[in-house]
Write a protein that binds this DNA or RNA. Structure first.
Length: 582
DNA sequence: AAAAAAG
């Protein structure tokens, strides 16, 4: 396959600033050529890696969502091109390898060696199935069962291990068990694990371990996130983990954008960078570039399916620009998300080196720690009534309320702000200062009800969100999975209520299927609704049903009621709130 | 529709 064709695929038709990135593009081509040569010399990986493009069937099979007819298809079924690890693909732990090499190679001993191998393999298989770890690819290292093993096998910094313990983290989650050893072996991967199952740590630990110690060569690891809030959360996680180790972890904020502090004159005393894509690009496109990513060894794409979103103003083009800027010869890439589209899967299969894909449980499913409920509210007005009812009946804060647009977020906020509860709102039209304040207050428990757009749908880890309310119906099953994933995290219990009206009927079936698959009851008729055409579905994702404005206050009252009334209102404490509501 | 760079 022509390397430049791959390069074009990466951009999905996007236009690159070839003048600026021309040099990188050439290097990129060379790199791809190198990979292609490697592959052609190895017949096995040639099959796995550059196999013929999957047939249409295989492509649409990989997300259980696209054809949600309730099929319980194993996620492996669509991965025809990737070899299963069952059998002889497992690598050996170094200790066992040693033992075996010391054995005399007589017939009898050979037999016992075979048995030993077999037993080891059985053990590994058992661990994987116990934790619902599904893995596809060649030479996949064994999962680790404790953080201590990371120290003995992969030289995890003892201080990092201590930091883990201090944070109350005692043993790895399934995604961590498998993804960490893979990244430690410098394997490129596509990892798919449920919301709140520890993906952030799964890539942060290997980054810290891989870099070993601070160096002055510029950034060696980059993490990309779709929102600033998620970037800053990952940044803080890295800071916490690397405390006392001396790594220079950075996030591109407004100040660093203005200062261009990573420019050519910098002393390159940086190790890890966390950012949203556009900020990176902003720095890369300066003349001279205010950021150099040529020393990057690890590029982590968090919420990868989101960042692969296409379209003229979508993320995909930005991501491609970042990929090209990471021009070093040994750059490795890892993709993480709770959901995975066929798009991402195929791209990874074609472009990553000897890809391993890791899935925890079934792909694209909601966590079973969330009690999910669909609530018919009749009309738009019914939503507000039902919302007030929830508040009146009493609920345990904090609660997250998702709406479909910024305008509706504003409207709902104005409806609830005088109810005597601590409510706030967050969306991309608020200033960064406001956004930061809101997130901090919500984390501190000062806000009980937070109204938000899709801004907070992905990756954000608020401890102890008790209720997610989908005030507006989610635009897709994927969106639904991420929204309700803000609760029920790390094994805790959570609850999600989703309002729906007659207008939401087209997407009702697909969301009902997600709920059913997670083990929550749904009325049979919903599953029985006729499947909508995928064209219609796509249109709904882009243009959700038009909804009337959220407003109950008669106009003549709205003018009299100013902000003054809100200001004079006696503030209510958290205890008061609980009393009001019970 | 939202998000992502400033303003």
């Amino acid at each position: 396959m022509d390397a430049f064709e791959l390069f074009r695929k990466l951009g999905a038709g996007a236009k690159f600033d070839l003048k600026r990135f021309g040099q990188d593009a050439v290097r990129f081509k060379v790199q791809l050529k190198h990979v292609a040569d490697d592959v052609s010399s190895d017949p096995l990986s040639a099959i796995d890696y550059f196999g013929p493009a999957p047939a249409n069937g295989a492509q649409s099979k990989t997300t259980g969502l696209e054809d949600e007819g309730g099929e319980e298809s194993e996620e492996g079924s669509g991965d025809g091109k990737l070899k299963d690890t069952g059998g002889n693909c497992i690598s050996w732990t170094s200790s066992l390898e040693g033992k075996i090499q010391n054995l005399p190679s007589e017939g009898k001993e050979k037999n016992s060696l075979k048995r030993l191998k077999h037993l080891h393999q059985e053990k590994v298989n058992r661990i994987r199935s116990q934790h619902r770890i599904n893995v596809h690819g060649c030479d996949v290292p064994d999962p680790v069962c404790t953080f201590e093993e990371l120290q003995s096998e992969y030289h995890l910094n003892p201080r990092v291990l201590q930091n883990l313990r201090d944070a109350g983290l005692n043993s790895p989650t399934p995604i961590q068990m498998q993804a960490i050893p893979l990244m430690m072996h410098s394997r490129e991967l596509l990892a798919c694990a449920p919301t709140g199952s520890g993906k952030t740590l799964a890539f942060c630990l290997p980054l810290l371990t891989h870099l070993q110690q601070p160096a002055n060569r510029g950034f060696r690891a980059v993490v990309i996130s779709p929102t600033r809030e998620l970037a800053s959360q990952t940044y803080r996680e890295l800071l916490r983990l690397s405390e006392g180790v001396g790594f220079r972890v950075h996030i591109i904020d407004k100040a660093s954008l203005a200062a261009k502090k990573y420019g050519p004159q910098s002393n390159k005393k940086y190790d890890i960078l966390v950012s949203t894509p556009n900020r990176l690009i902003f720095l890369l496109k300066q003349d001279p570039p205010a950021l150099n990513l040529s020393s990057v060894e690890w590029l982590v794409v968090d919420e990868s399916d989101k960042l692969f979103e296409d379209g003229k103003t979508g993320f995909r083009e930005q991501l491609a620009t970042v990929f090209l800027a990471c021009s070093g010869s040994k750059v490795r890439r890892a993709f993480f998300s709770a959901t995975c589209t066929p798009d991402v899967e195929q791209w990874c299969r074609l472009n990553l080196d000897n890809l391993v894909s890791v899935n925890i449980g079934h792909r694209n499913t909601a966590v079973d720690t969330v009690e999910q409920e669909l609530l018919f509210v009749g009309t738009e007005n019914g939503k507000l009534v039902a919302m007030r009812d929830i508040i009146k009946k009493g609920f345990l804060p904090p609660m997250l309320v998702f709406v479909q647009s910024i305008e509706r977020a504003r409207e709902l906020f104005h409806e609830l702000v005088y109810e005597g509860i601590n409510v706030d709102v967050i969306h991309a039209d608020r200033t960064q200062q406001q956004r930061d304040n809101v997130v901090n207050s919500f984390r501190a428990g000062k806000i009980w009800v937070l109204i938000c757009t899709a801004l907070l749908a992905r990756g954000i880890d608020f401890k102890g969100v008790n209720l997610v309310l989908n005030y507006d119906f989610p635009t897709s099953a994927v969106e639904y999975i991420h929204r309700i994933g803000r609760t029920g995290r790390a094994g805790h219990q959570g609850k999600a209520i989703t309002f729906f009206t007659e207008n939401d009927k087209p997407l009702l079936r697909s969301i009902a299927n997600v709920i059913k698959q997670a083990g929550c009851p749904v009325p049979d008729y919903m599953i029985g609704i006729k499947k909508i055409h995928s064209k219609v579905k796509r249109r709904l994702e882009k243009k959700p049903p038009k909804r009337s404005t959220i407003c109950t206050t008669p106009r003549f009252l709205m003018k009299k009621k100013g902000k003054a009334q809100g200001r004079n209102k006696k503030s209510v404490s958290h205890c008061d709130f609980l009393r009001i509501c019970t």
